[in-house]
Write a protein that binds this DNA or RNA. Structure first.
Lengths: 351, 351
DNA sequence: CTGAAAGCGCTAACAC
DNA sequence: GTGTTAGCGCTTTCAG
């Protein structure tokens, strides 16, 4: 694969060739061999204490830092793991969900002594560059998030032959590889069941649902399935599809109220949509939860706690999902390669 | 620097040693020397067209991907640039500002054929790991953002001896190195002047300001200075300090109204604070802009356009700042090493 | 235009 | 415990 420079010929090089001290310099200066220095660096036990001390001193004195490239070349390890986010529209950064997830990932990776490096897929040509980066051996593995179904990522890692795990169950498309991708996901269906059952338990009878894009996203389809598990006979006019956004939730709620002014509850498949629904209900003078009870999904505290009234919603342990992702990457050996993280209902005032 | 593994001994290795094809394999298979293959890979001109073709074919056939570690070892280049975000509290991901900035950075880096990799400083021990990562030669340079004054980043890069530029003017603290750090920043002072002048031009006389943490953040101090440039005689009770957040803005507005119920305008040093101020003004029954005009700073469209009324605010070309950061990294040779990106006022309904 | 040879800086057997 | 010796896979003079 050719990798010529882009628009500019400017190139960024570090210290002009050979200025940095090498392991050899450290060895000479401390009167030992390279191997011994290497052992000290890598914390191997069988080195005399005084020697260790002296070598450490020299290292500090010289400001020696091991050259990772040289090390990688022989160990085949980098100590870095890529987290790839496919987010052409920049939605991701607005998502506290991702923030939390990432923190979970970083924590777990840190336990393995690995550094998380985040890459973005934004413009079309980013894909090639990221593929080169991943395939080129800059990282030991990758954790991939594809916000889009049939995302560009799923096929890529197979070809690159790099350890990879997916956040959210990858939706396999027609022509896609059949190879199973290891993934971690929340219990979307179970969570939706909990939410809807809660509404039923509260005595609600005409329970509507605002769904995510269930024809495209696995999570959305599962959440709808959970709703149907509890309410197999729900009439179709109580179901309105939206897109996981606040505005979409508002639109859907408007449509539902229009169609079924008698509804007494709504399960929104995301907190953002639930917030949009609350906005509309308020505008229409419906009291929540007295007239209409509302349950969301995700438990994004920043949203769920600041709505009026605060939102009852399905809690996902997002940080735990992040941790599991990192763990799965290191445990690929053992099957099964899918982890479903349980959900639980956080009851606030809206239902 | 010793780098033993963390809690677990699990290690992530790529293909078991030597399974991937090397440049040697490609050379043999296409009946040329390693050098020629290398030339083809690097797009050097002086190779016979047929040879190029054949080598490319073999590369594809074998699924050969150059080993970056080996390449780095000799070229001293990685093709990657780190973007380091110091964000102990997770605020960053909620910040559309950063999203935009990052996009600008990525674009410009892409022009130079470089991949942006994002690193986070979250927990205390992240600092050491990130330092190792940067110093270890995984990247050719670093773009650093420190949300906190006297941040942990400023000293680090000097010691690491790696090309680095800062987003936002680094605030040098007492014991810190005196070495000037190249940086890119918006024209905070000029922008504030524009904002306040606009209020003056609109005939406002008692113009209050909600400032950022000006004892800690350079930008906040500059925005306050801009306010004072225009209103050197403003009484101190028209100035209220907050923390750049919406809640802080609301609190500050409450205090100001309490102290100076006669105020007829307010310049908030961030859109978030302006939004908070608008909330409070509405609660207090003040009409905006009729009774009180409000100007913000940042022009985060998601916020500025969705407030009621939409916010007049100082626009920063954030993507441009990102681009300049990347550019500065490649241009470090030429002084000066500070870039100030101009601002302009976006007039909406609030003032 | 192409090949041969010499490393880049490090780790990992294997001897001592 | 410590040193010696091979490479890891690539680029890059330097010849031809």
């Amino acid at each position: 694969m050719p990798d010529q420079l882009g628009g500019s010929e400017t190139v960024l090089t570090r210290r002009p060739h050979g200025q940095r001290p090498t392991i050899e310099d450290v060895a000479r200066r401390s009167g030992v061999s390279r191997s011994t220095v290497s052992r000290v660096i890598n914390g191997e036990p069988k080195v005399r204490a005084e020697v260790v001390e002296e070598v450490r001193r020299v290292i500090a004195e010289l400001g020696y830092v091991p050259n990772q490239a040289a090390r990688q070349l022989v160990t085949h390890r980098t100590g870095a793991v890529a987290v790839v986010a496919d987010q052409p529209d920049g939605r991701l950064f607005l998502d506290p969900f991702f923030d939390c997830l990432l923190r979970g990932i970083r924590r777990e990776l840190a336990r393995h002594g690995a550094q998380a490096v985040l890459l973005f897929l934004d413009e079309p040509d980013d894909l090639a560059r990221v593929a080169d980066y991943l395939g080129g051996g800059h990282v030991d593995g990758a954790i991939l998030f594809s916000l889009h179904p049939g995302g560009r990522l799923h096929g890529m890692t197979d070809r690159l032959d790099i350890p990879a795990v997916f956040g959210g169950r990858p939706l396999l498309h027609d022509g896609d590889t059949v190879r199973a991708h290891p993934y971690v996901d929340g219990d979307n269906r179970g969570g939706a069941r909990q939410a809807v059952q809660h509404l039923v338990d509260r005595g609600r009878r005409r329970i509507a649902t605002v769904t995510g894009p269930h024809d495209q996203e696995h999570s959305a389809a599962e959440r709808l399935a959970g709703y149907r598990d509890v309410l197999p006979d729900a009439p179709p006019d109580l179901v309105e599809r939206a897109d996981y956004t606040r505005q979409g939730g508002a639109r859907a709620m408007t449509a539902l109220l229009d169609r079924r002014p008698d509804l007494d509850a709504v399960f929104a498949a995301s907190d953002l949509m639930a917030a949009g629904a609350l906005d509309v209900l308020r505008e229409h003078g419906r009291r929540v939860p007295d007239d209409v009870a509302v349950v969301g999904f995700d438990d994004l505290t920043e949203i769920a706690e600041s709505t009026d009234p605060p939102l009852t919603t399905v809690h996902q342990d997002v940080a735990e999902m992040g941790r599991q992702l990192a763990r799965l990457l290191f445990d690929r050996a053992k099957e099964p390669t899918a982890v479903v993280v349980p959900t639980q209902l956080t009851v606030r005032a809206s239902a």
